[in-house]
């Protein structure tokens, strides 16, 4: 899955359970790290699981409950035992009430019973309140965690912006115009190479989102093309891609961007949408 995000179509296919095992595993790994894709997949899963509600309703066998309780290690009090327990509790309560009445001679049994009922109801209300508040507390805790994550994301974005700004200002950087072959697109782009940071940035506008395909950056060196990774534009068509220049590459004669199928290609196959010529990156 790499750095690219999961499309709605992929999320739907994953949620309904129709993907092959390798792709399903790749998505599972990706959403473990990507919160935005995780949200997309969760929404799709919620939708897919609605299909389960449409199963024709059947009555579960009554014996199942006994089996479940046994397998779960639970005890189901029998009706006789329940009756015995209640009777014993009632007898004890009656004895206490009679004793109190005997001592005071003033309090009615009914009044005592009502008070006990009220106390019980109050306690029940407190339990309900406590449970509700635990749910709310858990939600607030999750919100705090989300906020903390968002702040960390912003901090990371700020750091990468600062690095790009330094590259743009550095006298040792090359800032090159990126051109599209033909005039089929109004995209404009720049390639920034910073010798000090040993990093490349590629930026372009008005790119199309391509379900099932991806943009891939290539560096040509010594007549061979080396993949520098894949990227996808955001919803506005803007793409900003950054990576460390691989140490194994001695230099670059040119850099191109192609459109490749799926999550990218090990060899350059797709059509070229951008190229940079006369690029002098690093020592040749």
């Amino acid at each position: 899955m790499g750095a690219s995000h999961i499309t709605q179509e992929q999320a739907d296919e994953y949620a309904i359970g129709s993907l092959d095992a390798p792709l399903e595993r790749a998505i599972r790994l990706h959403i473990a790290e990507c919160s935005s894709c995780r949200e997309v997949v969760r929404e799709a899963e919620a939708l897919a699981n609605m299909v389960g509600l449409a199963a024709p309703l059947r009555r579960a066998p009554a014996r199942m409950k006994k089996q479940v309780y046994r397998n779960a290690g639970l005890t189901r009090p029998s009706p006789m035992r329940r009756m015995f327990t209640i009777s014993r509790a009632a007898a004890g309560l009656a004895a206490v009430v009679v004793a109190i009445a005997a001592f005071t001679g003033m309090v009615s049994i009914k009044g005592q019973m009502d008070e006990l009922k009220d106390d019980n109801a109050d306690l029940q209300t407190q339990i309900n309140d406590a449970l509700s508040q635990r749910v709310e507390l858990a939600a607030v805790t999750q919100q705090l965690e989300d906020t903390r994550q968002a702040a960390a994301d912003l901090q990371e974005a700020s750091k990468t912006d600062r690095e790009l700004m330094l590259a743009l200002l550095s006298p040792s950087s090359d800032i090159l115009a990126v051109t599209a072959p033909g005039e089929a697109t109004n995209s404009i782009g720049r390639l920034v190479w910073d010798e000090e940071q040993k990093r490349l940035w590629f930026m372009a506008t008005q790119l199309q989102q391509r379900p099932g395909e991806t943009y891939q950056l290539w560096a040509q060196s010594g007549g061979r093309y080396f993949s520098l990774g894949t990227f996808e534009p955001d919803e506005s068509g803007f793409a900003r891609y950054e990576r460390v220049i691989p140490e194994g590459l001695a230099g670059y004669d040119t850099v191109v961007v192609t459109i490749e199928r799926g999550a990218g290609s090990p060899v350059r196959e797709g059509p070229t949408v951008f190229f940079v010529s006369s690029l002098n990156l690093g020592p040749n």
Binding site: G52, L53, A55, P56, L57, R59, A60, L74
Partner: peptide, 21 residues
């Protein structure tokens, strides 16, 4: 356990139906 009993009664037919499907 009583909470479990309530949830069981509430959803047992649905779970069984989906499993059967």
């Amino acid at each position: 356990q009583l909470a479990f009993a309530v949830l069981y009664d509430r959803y047992v037919d649905l779970v069984y139906s989906a499993s059967y499907r």
